[in-house]
Design a binder for these strands. Structure first.
Lengths: 219, 219
DNA sequence: TTATAAGTTTAAGCACACTTAAATTTATAA
DNA sequence: TTATAAATTTAAGTGTGCTTAAACTTATAA
């Protein structure tokens, strides 16, 4: 049987896979805020149990079993987030933390009942799609990070990463929420920061923050 | 900081205190399904941290801090049970198990929001009162176990213990649910079993089961 | 009252998920 | 190409909550 710690490894791996579907142990250690040595230890166990493909000094891949497990955790997480935000009125910058605890403590039956209760939501409060019972994730509109936009582009906010510390509360402060329209007024070559209009106010955000906000280009 | 295991100790102690407000280590070991040695170990830690009064070879008492903590866990547990049963339609003989996991994974803020969402329920699906934010438990009507009833008594079911394995599903099978009226037709001196009418059907239950069902005497 | 049973503690040890430090391998930049 | 830095693994060790076995204390029943 898999435990809470292992569940955290699997979701963290899944959330941070690169374009090749791989992740390096060091990144995992950084994200989990533990030592590299601990990661090596656990990877051997997860490999032994068939959740990851692991070879010494190589990048890690999830097995199909590992991927299913991770996607189910994501499903649990996002359904809880919808409940917390939609039913209980918890602000969107608080739900991630609570859901991280709840996702480990709920049976699939409970999650299915909750999904029904919430009338089968398609996205979580940060705009991320919710995998269905079979792990299928609905293809969403083609979205890009704000960093990909050009001057004079108009776009609508579709998704904001929820697993970056304090990002959501900061982003909320400068007036960004899902569905909001932004107009790019300038892009600084120097540091990659972006200048834009939100609700008729000019706002400057760093490249790093811009890379965590995903939008649908309108014009 | 207190962990899941310690939370389980505190709630199990609280649920099983005797009339003198004490519990013996052995009973705790039985209820937690672990060895006596493990209990001794943990009691020293809980004592060191101020949650229980513990002296070698003596019965255990909760400190006021320990009692508050336990009552808050009970509050979490019962509020979750109401949600699972009332909002999600989970049967009353399934909610205890789910709530036992959830109670360790929810902040007080979440529980308070949930309580508001559920419109401040007074009892859980098994008839047990829900402590308020301050740990106050509403005095309920005077209830007695079925074992205390006499022949020809009529009574209404108010509470059924939820922490006895398989009791609820058994009790459900024989037609007992909250609010149901029962009529005592006979009591067997020999084994303490009780014969009664439920929905015009005669049912015999053992003394042990009768001792877990609490009723309000009508006549 | 005492023999025996039951309950409790102590001691030694285990699995787990971590740590730091040192050794080794791989990546990077001069 | 090679020196150095970064990443990874190995080794040794820690705290936690558990185990079994043995020692000890308390309760119970003849």
């Amino acid at each position: 049987m898999i435990n809470i710690s292992q569940e955290d490894y699997l979701t963290t791996i899944y959330r941070n896979l690169d374009d090749a579907g791989e992740i390096k142990p060091n990144l995992l250690a950084v994200k989990l805020e533990i030592s590299n040595a601990a990661v090596t230890d656990m990877l051997r166990k997860l490999s032994r149990d068939g959740f990851v493909n692991y070879q010494k000094y190589k990048s890690i891949k999830l097995t199909s079993e590992g991927e299913s497990y991770a996607k189910n955790m994501l499903r649990r997480h996002r359904i809880w987030e919808v409940f917390l935000h939609q039913s209980l009125g918890m602000p969107w910058d608080k739900v991630h933390e609570e859901a991280e605890k709840l996702e480990h403590s709920s049976s699939d039956e409970l999650i299915n009942l909750l999904e029904e209760f919430l009338e089968y939501p398609e996205v979580d409060p940060h705009g991320f799609p919710i995998p269905d019972k079979n792990g299928k994730i609905k293809k969403s509109k083609s979205v890009v990070a704000i960093t990909e936009l050009d001057e004079n582009d108009i776009a609508k906010v579709i998704r904001v990463n929820d697993d970056v510390k304090n990002l959501l509360s900061y982003v909320t402060k400068i007036g960004i929420s899902l569905g909001k329209e932004i107009f790019i007024t300038d892009k600084l070559e120097y540091d990659g920061s972006v200048l834009m209009m939100i609700d008729k106010k000019e706002v400057n955000i760093s490249n790093k923050i811009a890379s965590n906000i995903f939008v649908e280009k309108i014009k």
